[in-house]
Simulated assay, not measured.
Amino acid sequence: MKPNIGISEQNLEGVIKILSTLLADEYVLYTKARNYHWNVIGMQFNDLHKFFQTLYEELNEYVDDVAERIRTLGGNAIGTLKEFLEATRLKEHPGEYPDAKTMLSNLLNDYETIIRNLRNDIVTVSEKYQDLGTADFLTELMEKHEKTAWMLRAFLS
């Protein structure tokens, strides 16, 4: 049954497409943080191992929240690795096990990429698709990512 929430079916489809891409980005970032948690080495091992765990636990919640927003709007959430890799705007680095500083830098780049994309998506969702609920949802998520990006920059300074 399609939702009857004051947003046209065509607009809902546009919002769901944006959210599906975001879902893929969040899942790829989750996977990267998990990978770095497993593979970090060096003098800051303990701190970074815990920090990366905090990141992937937060990202796991974000993945679930985005998927549930898609379902709320009547869409189906993508959920396979193939779909995530086809839809993501982030870059993976298979077979690479960088040093801790590069791990932090890679994560910062990905968080900032998501933030920039969210900033554009918020405008599109609110102005083009007239979905203020999703715009609010994306704004809150962007603010969370901005805080994490600040922490990553602090680690790198």
Rank of each mutant, 00 (worst) to 15 (best):
Y36N: 05
T80N: 04
R116W: 07
N11P: 03
I114T: 02
I70S: 00
V125N: 00
I122Q: 04
A33L: 09
L104H: 03
L19P: 09
Q44W: 09
D99Q: 14
A149V: 03
E86H: 13
L118R: 06
I115K: 02
T134L: 10
R69C: 09
V63D: 01
F137G: 00
N39V: 07
Y97Q: 12
M142W: 00
A67I: 09
M142N: 11
E68W: 01
S20H: 11
D64E: 14
N109Y: 11
D99N: 15
N60I: 00
R89W: 12
M103A: 02
M103P: 05
K91L: 11
E92K: 09
N76Q: 13
N39Y: 15
S105T: 13
A33E: 04
L22C: 12
L107A: 04
H145L: 13
E26F: 03
I7K: 02
L108S: 09
F137E: 02
E26V: 08
K128H: 12
T80C: 08
K50C: 02
D65N: 12
L132D: 15
K128I: 08
A135P: 09
N117S: 14
G133L: 08
W38Q: 06
L156H: 01
L138G: 06
K128E: 13
L108H: 05
E86I: 08
T88I: 08
D65A: 15
E112S: 05
L81W: 14
T88W: 08
L23P: 04
M1R: 06
F155H: 13
Q53A: 11
V63N: 07
H37N: 08
T31G: 10
R34Q: 13
Y62E: 08
I78K: 06
T54V: 11
Q10H: 07
A154N: 01
Y56P: 01
A24I: 13
A67M: 11
Y36F: 15
I5S: 07
Q10G: 01
K147N: 08
T80M: 01
F52L: 03
E140Y: 12
G6E: 06
Y62P: 00
R116T: 11
D25E: 09
N46G: 04
N39K: 07
L59P: 03
T139N: 05
L152G: 07
D110Y: 04
L104G: 03
L132Q: 15
H37T: 05
P98A: 08
Y129S: 08
D121L: 06
G74C: 01
N117A: 14
S8Q: 02
N109R: 09
K32C: 05
A87W: 03
E112V: 03
I114H: 05
Y129K: 02
L152S: 00
R69L: 11
S105G: 08
A87Q: 04
T88F: 05
M103E: 07
F137S: 01
E9H: 02
K147V: 05
E140T: 15
E26Q: 14
E9G: 00
V123H: 12
T72R: 06
A135F: 08
K128N: 14
L48G: 00
D99P: 07
N76H: 13
H37L: 02
N60F: 13
N106Q: 12
H37A: 06
V40I: 08
L138V: 03
Y129P: 03
M142T: 03
Y56W: 13
L118A: 06
V125T: 10
K144L: 04
Q44C: 05
I70W: 00
L12C: 01
